[in-house]
Design a binder for these strands. Structure first.
Lengths: 210, 210
DNA sequence: AGCTTTTTGAAACATTTGGTTCGAAATTCC
DNA sequence: GGAATTTCGAACCAAATGTTTCAAAAAGCT
């Protein structure tokens, strides 16, 4: 199953590549993109300067790798929170709570690479990646709504697309507030209320006529 | 009413102070805070380097001035959009549309100093200002909800505080998407739908029992 | 042990950046 | 017109930053 780790020829590395990337994530979350210097990365990742360039490339390349890993991990957690629970409300609460918990995880600066940092990076590849990631998140929530429609949990005319957009906007709002330093407890409470906002039974249609 | 403009003694300035600040706003919106160099400001504001330091101070000071002016202008527009219309729905739509229009105004980079740029600035004074600005915005929306309760437009048990938080979160989400490059038309449509989300008549209570 | 391979730490280098200095320019006051 | 006052543009300086070079170190291979 696993490839036997063949010992490489030369001097062994003094750092673990994935671990270093994780630390780079912390650095970028704490200082944004432009605020990070190579020295910050050298100090934060525990990797010497020449090794850093040799193994990871320049700042832009490192950020892209960090961003991809971050988005993958966060996407996996979001998908799990969203698709595991049997009720739609639990899914939405879990999704929004996950966003808050990730944005207020201790050991890292508050905020989110995808919501708060990457959108400010003026780079075509980053922008493209972001757009794809956003579309992916949207599709995930939409899918959960459609599953709930199939299960008869919400009416078949439930505006899944619009509501999915709103759920993501609410999670972005929570994340921005986390970045601003709002305490986790407050945000977790608001996350639950936000889920209820999207779901509470309505008297009329979800979209007003005309 | 207006103070007669007494001609100052020396060589006249080659720039207008407020105009220069407005251009500085554009620079910060386009490049964030850390991404902006003094040269960017010199080039963008049309002010020579020594004059810039003499008149405005260093980057941090300039940013704080820009931020205050920006927040005041944006707050005024938000208050007008929120408090002028007679129906609550028009107020909310106007408020959210204002956020989108401001975040997608042409001539400036998409995004918002208060939502996308300032939260990343690692400075105590900026953070404090942000918190106050956020509290102000929240109070404004809450007040509008309470007025609507007084007017009998929504039931007296309408959860004004929670809904106000959600309206602001939705506007932040729209703003972040603007920063990501999403087109204005899409966001304006979503702004209307977001207003409806908050307001549509409900069958049960707004908060679920225990 | 000696050779090869790879990583490492320190230093070196060029460029960018934040901030200041200084003489020239433009204006008012006498 | 000339002195006083303020601003402007160019150049300057020191510190920070991005990137590379190089010899020494640490491992495997024979």
């Amino acid at each position: 199953m696993f490839q036997k780790a063949v010992k490489p020829r030369g001097r062994p590395r003094s750092f673990d590549e994935n671990d270093a990337l994780e630390q780079a994530t912390r650095v970028f979350r704490a200082k944004g993109y432009d605020g990070v210097t190579i020295d910050d990365l050298v100090a934060g990742m525990g990797v010497g300067r020449p090794s850093l360039y040799a193994v990871f490339g320049d700042k832009r390349t490192i950020f892209l790798r960090v961003l991809r890993a971050y988005a993958e991990a966060k996407g996996a957690r979001a998908a799990k929170a969203l698709l595991s629970p049997s009720t739609l409300r639990d899914s939405l609460v879990g999704f929004l709570r996950e966003a808050v918990e990730s944005a207020t995880a201790e050991g890292s600066a508050p905020g989110c690479l995808l919501v708060c940092v990457a959108p400010l990076v003026n780079d075509a590849e980053v922008r493209q990646f972001l757009q794809d990631a956003v579309a992916g998140g949207l599709a995930l929530v939409e899918r959960r709504f459609r599953d709930a429609i199939s299960a008869g949990e919400i009416p078949s005319d439930f505006p899944a697309v619009a509501r999915a957009s709103q759920v993501l906007d609410l999670s972005r709002g929570l994340t921005v507030r986390a970045q601003m330093g709002m305490p986790r407890e407050t945000l977790l409470k608001d996350a639950e209320e936000a889920a209820d906002l999207v779901l509470l039974p309505r008297r009329g249609n979800a979209t007003p006529e005309g």
